[in-house]
Each structure stands twice: as C-alpha cells, then as structure tokens.
C-alpha cells in the first residue's frame, strides 16, 4: 500500500517533469532564429526574409508557441488530422530520416538497449566483485591495487578511453593489431573492429566488445568505489564483530553478514547509473558509428530535426525519472528498517 503510494507520487512527478522539460525544449527549438534555419534547410538556403516568412506561415509555424505545443501534445486540434499528437501516440515526422519519429526512436532505443544490456552484464558483476574484494580488507595490498585501478577508470571520460581502446586494439597501424597481424595470429588487419555499425545487423564479440568496454569502464570504476566504501564500512560494524566472535569464517562473514548490508548503496547507485550511461552512449555511439539512441540524438540536434529532438528529450526524461523511482524501491527492498514502515 505504501509502495503503491510512492509509485503514484513518482509517476506524478515523472509526468510533470516530462511536461516541463518538453515545453522548455519546444520553446527553445521554436525560437525565431531556429525557425529561420529550419525554413532555409527545408526550403532553400537562399530564401529571402519574405520567403522565409511565407514558408513559416504555410507550415503553420507563425502561430503562438503555446498553440503549437498544444498541437504537438495532441491537446489542441491540428489542421489535417484532427487531434493527433504525442498523447495519441503520434510523435510526428523526422525530417532527417524521413520516417515517423516513433519508428526512428523505437529502432534506436532497441539498439541502445542491447548496448546497455551488455554494459550492465560486464559492469555490474565486475564492479561488485572488485568493490567487495577491496572493501573486505581495507588497506590491504589487494585493496590498494584495486583502488588505484578503479580511480583511474572512474577518472577517464569515455571520449578518452574510447580513443585509447580503438588505437590499441582496432587500428591497422597502431597498437597491438599490426603486431598480431604480422606474426599471423589474426586473419584480418585489426583485432577488434573500430566501428560497431555492423552490430546493427548482428552483434558479435568482435564488433561489440570495444563500445561495451568503453561505456562500462567508467561505470565499473565508479560503482566499485561505492561498493568498496560500503563494504569497508560494513566490515567495521559491531554485527560483523559479533559474527566473527560466533566463530563464523571470513567467507561467511563477507557473504552472509556484510554483503547484504553493503549492497544497499551500490544497488541504488547502479540504477542511478543508467541515465548516466545514456550520456556516455552519446559519445560512444558517435565514436563507433553505432546507430542507437545517442547517435540519433546527435543527428537530430545537428540537423535541426525538431520533432525527433523533442521525442528524444521526452524519452530521456522518462528514463531518468523511472530509474530513480526504481532505485527508491530497491533501497526499500534491501533495507528492512524502511520496509517495516
């Protein structure tokens, strides 16, 4: 019952935020200079001011922004199709792809979904294992080695690690590939493929490993840091001493007593990482030419594709807020003290 109340409240907040943000993006994309740019890119680059004005009038862009926004949402009737807008599932037409926005978004989200899935599969176990190993014996050699490594990866942005990885493993002229090729270890010219565009048709280890690792590296470092801190803290708690003085073995202490209490922080952080991954995805998809959500967002912004941009923004907001709600629920599930209330 309490959980239902929380969900309802979260849902309300989600809708309100999505509405505000889409209005903001809508208003920004409908500022006069941007509309002029739109007219010129849709019509002709050499249009005169008068031609621009008449193009805008013909396309209906000369009306007040609130009216346009209402039409986009589907709350106000639009000429030509009655009430059709986001609310009715009509997200408009992408000008870059010359396809309905919903279709473009669906395709790109599916592609990004695969990327995210593999990132999570790599990141979560690695990060938790590293964090637990490091935090189990604070100050030990293992702890220090893992700490240095995780601080390094957490401090390296994707556009650095991505380029370094490509140079190391996917360049025909630099890094490992030429060596391996010359000695006959690999058939092709590079060990991994430097582009993931092939992955749109079929994911293989060779075309997908680099983008996945690039996104996962940063998150792994960050989540491992959090896990380590939580684990180290749990290991100093009196209940861990109680367990030790009961005669429990080190592995039992770590796995049964400390881990569950230590997991509360990292699990919420992992869920909050999801939206952050979207951020990394923009860079990685562009770098590896993978046509997912990030790449689409860049295309939409670069080409002034207003309806696609609006669609991207709405989806992104929804994702961020949904994961936050999810992390709240996970926090309660892991913490019996909160569940009881």
């Amino acid at each position: 019952m309490r959980v239902a109340a929380i969900l309802l409240r979260r849902l309300g907040a989600l809708l309100a935020t999505a509405l505000c943000l889409s209005l903001l993006v809508f208003w920004l994309t409908h500022l006069p200079p941007n509309l002029e740019k739109l007219a010129k890119s849709q019509g002709s680059a050499r249009m005169s001011d008068a031609e621009v004005a008449s193009w805008l009038e013909r396309s209906g862009f000369d009306r007040p922004v609130p009216v346009l926004y209402g039409e986009w949402l589907g709350l106000l009737p639009k000429a030509g199709c009655g009430r059709c807008g986001v609310v009715q599932g009509d997200w408009g037409q992408s000008t870059v792809f010359r396809q309905p926005v919903a279709e473009v978004l669906g395709r790109s989200l599916a592609a990004t979904g695969w990327l995210m899935l593999w990132v999570m599969v790599v990141m979560v176990p690695t990060a938790l294992a590293l964090g637990v190993l490091a935090g189990m014996r604070e100050g030990s050699r293992t702890d220090r080695a893992i700490s240095v490594a995780t601080i390094l990866t957490a401090a390296t942005p994707e556009y650095v690690s991505g380029v370094v990885l490509v140079a190391l493993f996917a360049s025909a002229t630099a890094g490992l590939s030429p060596l391996l090729h010359e000695t006959g270890w690999i058939e092709g010219r590079t060990l991994f493929q430097g582009t993931a565009s092939g992955a749109m048709n079929g994911i293989t280890f060779w075309n997908f490993a680099l983008p996945v690792v690039t996104v996962a590296l940063y998150g792994t470092g960050y989540v491992a840091r959090i896990t380590r801190a939580a684990m180290a803290d749990a290991m100093t708690q009196p209940y861990v001493r109680t367990a030790r003085l009961k005669g429990a073995s080190q592995s039992r202490i770590v796995l049964v007593h400390a881990l569950r209490n230590a997991l509360v922080a990292p699990v919420t952080v992992i869920l909050l990482q999801l939206p952050w991954l979207l951020n990394g995805v923009v860079i990685v998809e562009t770098l590896f030419a993978y046509k997912g959500f990030g790449w689409t967002l860049v295309q939409a912004a670069g080409n002034n594709d207003i309806e696609l941009l609006l669609g991207c923004a709405t989806v992104a907001v929804t994702l961020v807020l949904a994961t936050q709600g999810l992390s709240d629920l996970a926090y309660r599930a892991l913490n019996p003290r909160l569940r009881a209330r």
Partner: peptide, 24 residues
C-alpha cells in the same frame, strides 16, 4: 580461533542494536 570463539569463549557487548545484523 574460529573453533574457540562462540563455543569456548563468547562475548556480549554494549550496544545490542549494533551487535545484531540489521538485515537478518
């Protein structure tokens, strides 16, 4: 030590709330 702790020598500490695992 593990065999001795609990079975041979046991400890009761100051803060009972802290001495028990909160999620078990």
């Amino acid at each position: 030590w593990r065999a001795l702790r609990g079975a041979g020598i046991a400890l009761v500490g100051q803060e009972p709330m802290a001495a028990l695992n909160p999620s078990m």
